[in-house]
């Protein structure tokens, strides 16, 4: 798909840079539409992926910025498989602004697994994996995806139904594209450099599920799922949730008064009756505060009265000063309301 001469000349004539801040610029031609009959060019920026903490996938990955909003894993796969882009094969695409749908379920499943392990064996000194700070987001989401394997609920069971058949990206978003091997990744980058240099034309095809009115109609349909689907999803989620709760109580009961590895005993309330619910804890706190308030109320001591009076006087002076300042400020800002003419 080599571009006609004219397009190449255009690109040369406008002298577009082929590199921006270390990224290779890959121009994508957007075909004209009946509602917008103008041929436009979109620019995708590529560079090798270089996270702070590389892993085995890193050499095979490219980091891409500024996707068309209708990019999907599928149509990116198709894009890179084209000959003009080196015919590379994409393994996966990890989008930056992946919405956190299904996250709660994943967390719940993780917890369930951990608790189940814990309830079997004694508590290991280590807490749950801590999230590393300052790490690029794409890394996190990649890890999360890995972690979601091997649970005792089905892959999507307990998850709420998706409401869009096709997600749309935010404008200017980025993603890590993981190729099948390093050679493919390199080939894609090289091809992009060549295209940018020579001003060849690559047409962007935002294929996938329908856009336009159809997408919104599908959305309407999807966001009103049938009752039984919802019911079973909610049921399995809540079942898992109550399992977690009961495991937690069990473990807490077992650990009550038992010293840990260092010989410390964790002090916790409600050893016999189970872990106190948040609601109850709050109520107790409120009651406690109320009691303190009642014991030493206003005007109980003479000094309280004195201080109260002093405070009131100070308040008056402060108020006046405040008011004067406010009017002064109005005057100074020159935006004082003049009498309307």
């Amino acid at each position: 798909m080599v571009a006609p001469k004219k397009a190449r000349q255009d690109a040369l004539a406008s002298k577009l840079p082929i590199q921006v801040s270390g990224y290779t610029v890959l121009p994508l031609t957007l075909p004209p539409l009946s509602s917008f009959p103008k041929k436009t060019t979109h620019y995708l920026y590529l560079r090798p992926h270089a996270p702070k903490v590389p892993d085995e996938e890193t050499p095979k990955s490219l980091f891409l910025v500024n996707f068309p909003i209708d990019a999907t894993e599928d149509n990116l796969r198709k894009l890179f498989s084209r000959e003009v882009l080196g015919g590379s094969r994409v393994k996966s695409v990890i989008f930056e602004d992946l919405r956190d749908a299904g996250n709660a379920r994943k967390k719940l499943m993780n917890e369930l697994r951990e608790l189940e392990e814990e309830s079997l064996g004694p508590k290991k000194g280590q807490g749950k994996k801590r999230k590393r700070r300052g790490q690029p987001e794409e890394e996190d989401s990649a890890r999360q995806q890995d972690g979601s394997e091997g649970l005792n609920l089905g892959d999507t069971e307990g998850e709420l139904p998706t409401v869009w058949d096709r997600e749309i990206l935010r404008s200017g978003s980025s993603a890590v594209v993981v190729f099948v091997d390093k050679i493919s990744a390199d080939a894609a980058l090289k091809a992009a450099r060549r295209i940018a240099k020579k001003g060849e034309e690559v047409i962007w095809r935002g294929e996938g599920e329908a856009l336009g009115l159809r997408r919104y109609q599908n959305h309407h349909e999807l966001s009103h799922p049938p009752k039984h689907t919802l019911q079973s999803s909610v049921n399995s989620y809540l079942a898992a949730f109550s399992r977690v709760e009961s495991l937690r109580t069990q473990i807490a009961k077992r650990n009550f008064g038992v010293p840990d590895e260092d010989g410390f005993v964790t002090v916790s309330k409600g050893g016999r009756s189970g872990v106190a619910s948040m609601a109850r804890a709050e109520k107790t706190k409120e009651r406690h505060e109320e009691r303190t308030e009642k014991r030493v109320g206003d005007g109980f001591y003479r000094f309280q009265l004195r201080e109260e009076r002093k405070k009131r006087e100070g308040e008056l002076v402060r108020k006046f000063e405040e008011d004067r300042e406010r009017v002064e400020k109005m005057r100074k800002s020159g935006k004082r309301r003049k009498v309307e003419m």
Binding site: V20, L30, L33, T40, H42, S171
Partner: peptide, 29 residues
């Protein structure tokens, strides 16, 4: 969405308005 522009030595980017409009047209279908 942005497009690269030459600015002195360094290349910079600015808003790619045409491409954004084309995207809006595609999204709206």
């Amino acid at each position: 969405s942005s497009l690269p522009v030459a600015k002195g030595e360094e290349a910079e980017v600015k808003m790619n308005r045409d491409a954004i409009l084309a995207e809006m047209a595609r999204l709206g279908g």
